[in-house]
C-alpha cells in the first residue's frame, strides 16, 4: 500500500476530485456500454416473443 491510512487514500494527495473523477467516469462508461447492449437485447427479445406468439395463433 502506498498510503498510510484510508484518509490519505481518500485525499489522494489533494488530487481526489481529478483522480476519482477520472476513474469513476471510465468505470461508468465501461459498465454503461455493456448494460446498454443487455437492455437492447432484452427489449428485442420481448418484441420477438410477442411476434412469434401472434404467428402461432394464426397458422
Amino acid at each position: 500500500m502506498s498510503f498510510e491510512s484510508w484518509g490519505d487514500f481518500v485525499a489522494m494527495g489533494g488530487y481526489a476530485a481529478y483522480v476519482f473523477g477520472a476513474y469513476g467516469l471510465t468505470v461508468a462508461v465501461g459498465v454503461g456500454l455493456v448494460a446498454q447492449v443487455w437492455v437492447r437485447k432484452r427489449r428485442w427479445e420481448q418484441d420477438l416473443r410477442v411476434q412469434l406468439r401472434a404467428q402461432e395463433k394464426q397458422p
Binding site: G13, G14, Y18, V19, Y23
Partner: peptide, 8 residues
C-alpha cells in the same frame, strides 16, 4: 513529481 495525480 506528480504525486498521486499520476494515477490517472
Amino acid at each position: 513529481q506528480q504525486g498521486h495525480s499520476y494515477r490517472i
